[in-house]
Design a protein around this nucleic acid. Structure first.
Length: 260
DNA sequence: ATGGCTTCCATCGGAAGA
């Protein structure tokens, strides 16, 4: 089962690019972030024509995530547990059957947190605490489970072309990276890191300053997998080429292949 | 130190992203 995560930065603006990539890569599952659309306005038809079922958790103008799957999408829940007053659409969970085994899919769009310090950074750290709690429960369940999305976390210096430029940024502050490590160290595997230890593997290039042309990138889109999923991990990769296309998102897809 | 692009909503500028 090929599972991809892709921050598309607006479904309306990105529909042609998304359709092109889906048609080429044919992932079994695609977890989308920043659809920036309410559920009613999500352009379902063209995506369904490619053979996908769709579950969205939308919001006007900002945030919003979605699950696309060629197989039926079951047990859908919306919203990250732990704060009923949180109205931002950043978490969706579902179960999809593989050929033999079920896979639990968690699509997430972790808050950016800038400027830091400030209320937006406080919200990011609080959201990461809630994520840690959900992650703990996922491990306890001992399922084949994937938490994939835009984490807005640069884990290490090798995950940025110019790490010193991010020193004071909410994506790279020590407290952000500590929170990331607390989650990973519960027992998750960073699937892309399982396949390569080398630096220079990026998933985001800013629209400004010719970041793509200069390869001034960062790795902030991740797939964390439970031990049961890690045992089934066949491959992982980044579809960096889509960043060079017409009207691209500033993020590119990250994918993993599970033998399920 | 700031803004540089891009998206969205709603106009013709502002917020948010990272």
């Amino acid at each position: 089962m090929k599972i991809a995560t892709f921050n598309i930065n607006g479904i309306k603006a990105r529909l042609p690019a998304l359709l092109e990539w889906l048609g080429e890569v044919q992932p079994d599952v695609a977890l989308l972030q920043e659809i920036k659309s309410v559920d009613e306005n999500f352009p379902r038809l063209k995506i369904e024509e490619l053979g996908y079922n769709i579950e969205t958790h939308g919001q006007k103008s900002f945030n919003g995530i979605a699950v696309l799957s060629k197989r039926p999408i079951e047990e859908v829940t919306r919203g990250l547990p732990g704060d009923d007053s949180d109205e931002q659409a950043r978490w969706i969970e579902a179960v999809v059957m593989g050929e033999r085994d079920a896979v639990r899919l968690c699509g997430l769009y972790l808050p950016n947190g800038n400027p830091a310090p400030g209320p937006k950074y406080d919200y990011k750290l609080a959201w990461m605490e809630r994520l840690e709690a959900r992650a703990r429960d996922l491990l306890t369940a001992e399922e084949i489970a994937v938490m994939a999305g835009d984490y807005n976390v640069i884990p290490e210096r090798r995950d940025a072309e110019r790490p010193d430029a991010w020193i004071d940024d909410a994506l790279f502050l020590p407290e952000t990276r500590r929170a990331w490590r607390r989650i990973v160290n519960l027992g998750f595997s960073d699937a892309l890191r399982e396949t390569t230890q080398s630096g220079g593997v990026y998933t985001f290039w800013d629209y400004q300053r010719g970041a793509w042309e200069r390869n001034d990138g960062i790795r902030i889109d991740h797939a964390l997998v439970t031990p049961q999923a890690a045992d089934r991990l066949v491959a992982a990769g980044v579809d960096a080429n889509v960043r060079g296309r017409e009207k691209p998102s500033d993020h590119v897809p990250v994918w993993i292949e599970l033998d399920v």
